[in-house]
Amino acid sequence: MPKSLSFRSGLGSVLFWSVISAAFIGPGTVTTCSMAGSQYGFSLLWALTFSTLGTILLQEAAARITIASGRSLGEIISETYGLRSKALPLFLFGAVALGCAAYQAGNILGAVAGLTLLTQLPAWVLTIVVGVVSTALLWAGSTGGIAKFLGMVVGLMGIAFAYVAAQAVTDTSALMTSLVVPTLPDGSLVLVIGLIGTTIVPYNLFLGSGIGEGQQLSEMRWGIGLAVAIGGLISGAILLAGTLVTGSFSFENVAQTLSSRMGSWAGSFFAFGLFAAGFTSALTAPLAAAVTAKSLLGWPDTSTAYRAVWLVVMGVGMLFGLLGVKPVPVIVLAQAANGLLLPVVAVFLLLAVNNRKLLPAQYCNNLWQNIAMGLVVAISAFLGLRNLWLVFA
Rank of each mutant, 00 (worst) to 15 (best):
V312M: 13
A378H: 01
G94T: 09
Y103N: 08
S188R: 03
T292P: 11
L319A: 15
L390G: 11
V353S: 07
L283Y: 02
G231T: 03
S268T: 14
V30N: 08
F348P: 06
A23W: 11
F270M: 10
I230T: 09
S38D: 10
T246A: 09
W17C: 00
S9A: 08
A62T: 04
A381N: 02
S51F: 09
G12N: 07
F206G: 02
W17N: 02
L274G: 14
V332Q: 15
G145N: 14
P2Y: 00
V312T: 15
F382W: 15
S173T: 14
S21P: 02
G26M: 04
I200H: 10
A255C: 02
P300A: 03
K294W: 00
G155Y: 03
S51T: 11
A293I: 00
P329A: 02
I200Q: 02
L342A: 11
L319T: 15
A62L: 09
S295I: 05
M262N: 14
L359Q: 04
S303K: 05
R64F: 10
V154C: 08
I76M: 03
L342M: 12
T304K: 14
L88R: 08
F7A: 14
Q120T: 10
G70Q: 03
N366V: 13
L350I: 08
V377C: 09
Q362P: 01
A47G: 08
L11A: 13
T52G: 09
M262A: 15
P286L: 10
E213D: 12
L359G: 03
A123E: 15
S134W: 02
I193F: 12
I196E: 07
R261A: 15
P300T: 08
I159Y: 01
A123S: 14
I159S: 11
A378I: 07
R386E: 08
I224T: 04
S259L: 01
S142Y: 10
T183V: 13
L11N: 04
Q167A: 14
T177G: 12
L287W: 00
Y40T: 08
S4L: 05
A372R: 07
A276D: 12
W124H: 11
F161K: 02
R261C: 12
A288S: 06
L287G: 07
L350T: 01
V353E: 00
A229K: 06
L390A: 12
V133H: 03
I238Q: 04
Q215M: 04
N365I: 01
R386P: 02
A62H: 07
V347H: 06
L383A: 10
T32W: 06
L195A: 07
L350Q: 10
R8Y: 00
E252Q: 15
I20E: 05
D301R: 05
S6Y: 03
N204C: 00
A105F: 09
N107W: 06
A237I: 00
V313N: 02
A136F: 14
L383D: 10
I108N: 12
M157A: 11
V344F: 14
L156K: 07
T49W: 04
S268G: 13
L83S: 14
V153I: 13
L350P: 04
K326W: 13
W139E: 08
Y363E: 05
L319Y: 15
L233T: 09
L83G: 13
N253W: 00
V19D: 11
T52I: 04
T170C: 02
W46N: 11
L189Q: 09
T52F: 04
V312I: 15
